[in-house]
């Protein structure tokens, strides 16, 4: 781990001021950043601890929910309103990591967590464009069973590792950001980037910009939502494929639907094509499967991950079917 200076902020203003120092990074629970610093993949010269900032979970005037970036994963998962109004978020959080890590990790930190690509983690032994831009990607032709089938580029085939973010993508969440230049909001689905030729730039966050809160808009559809994670062991493993979905029926027809995929792309993958294909259609397994197919039509398998296409299609179908059965 490189040496660094440490400062703790109690207010957002302080955090931003402290972070103006060159190379500063905001530190949440540390569950990802400390690990990456220990691997010397991250080498910040200074850390600004933002766990003292808002961790509040409160209703908005519009009937939604606002969650402070410092809220612990476990606190969000456990919150009564999250459990009842946005069950997909609770489910996704509870499917991630372990009880101990959920007690440490923050909302903001989880959003900022980086890929688990083995070649990214292999600091000195493998090439990685994300770690060292322009170096090349050893994952593309390497061990890529865990890697992306959607939206990848020749520069990077890594996936986003978060479960929580897949739920936020499906909930139409909005991120509130603040920088010395002021505040702005970004739709959650636009926050993370596809790799393109600059896989090292993973989000639209600007240098020194801080995640303040995440807002979940009021939406009745979210009440009927869930999350399903498919992995290599029963617990405490990253997703091969995960599906977050919300469904509202009108009679036997899909009135509205939200669908997002995890483990398949460089960002939480909102499945807009599938949603489009489903609205107004009969809620049948055949239609669910067809919608999954529409979403996955551009999927490009790598050497070891072709199974993810079928797995994603099956899981989407099953999750939507489960929600449809609940609704009927």
């Amino acid at each position: 781990m490189n040496p660094f200076t440490y400062a703790r902020a109690e207010q957002a203003e302080d955090a931003l001021k402290l972070a103006e120092a060159q190379g500063a990074r905001f530190l949440g629970g540390g569950t990802n950043l400390v690990d990456l610093m220990r691997e010397t993949i991250e080498r910040p010269q200074s850390l600004v601890d933002v766990t003292g900032l808002s961790a509040a979970i409160e209703e908005t005037s519009a009937g939604g929910l606002r969650i402070g970036a410092a809220a612990r994963n476990s606190a969000v998962a456990e919150h009564r309103l999250v459990r009842t109004l946005y069950p997909v978020l609770s489910r996704a959080l509870l499917a991630g990591a372990s009880g101990q890590i959920r007690n440490m990790a923050t909302l903001g930190g989880n959003i900022m967590q980086r890929t688990r690509c083995a070649y990214f983690y292999d600091d000195d032994g493998s090439r990685c464009n994300k770690r060292t831009p322009g170096q090349g990607c050893d994952a593309a032709e390497g061990f890529n069973r865990y890697h992306a089938i959607l939206g990848a580029s020749p520069s990077c085939v890594a996936t986003h590792a978060s479960d929580m973010c897949v739920a936020l993508a499906v909930l139409d969440a909005v991120i509130h950001l603040r920088s010395p230049r002021g505040e702005r909001t970004v739709p959650f689905v636009d926050f993370h980037r596809l790799p393109g030729e600059t896989p090292q730039v993973e989000t639209v966050l600007e240098p020194g910009e801080l995640i303040l809160t995440v807002e979940l808009p009021a939406n009745p559809i979210a009440k009927r939502s869930t999350y399903r994670k498919v992995r290599d062991r029963s617990s405490y493993a990253f997703a091969l494929v995960s599906v977050a979905a919300a469904l509202e029926l009108d009679g036997g027809k899909v009135k509205d639907v939200r669908l997002a995929l995890g483990g398949v792309a460089h960002k939480p993958w909102r499945a807009l094509r599938a949603e489009e294909a489903l609205r107004g259609r009969e809620a049948t397994p055949e239609n669910f499967r067809a919608a999954a197919g529409a979403e996955l039509i551009d999927a490009k398998p790598l050497r070891y991950n072709a199974f993810k296409i079928e797995l994603a299609a099956r899981t989407i179908t099953a999750v939507l079917q489960e929600l449809a059965e609940e609704a009927q």
Binding site: A118, Y121, D122, S126, R233, S234, S235, Y236
Partner: peptide, 18 residues
Amino acid sequence: GRIMNPSLAEYHVPVHMD
């Protein structure tokens, strides 16, 4: 000729739930 999952996170051993 390199081991690519030199880690207890990526080398899966059975956990309680398994």
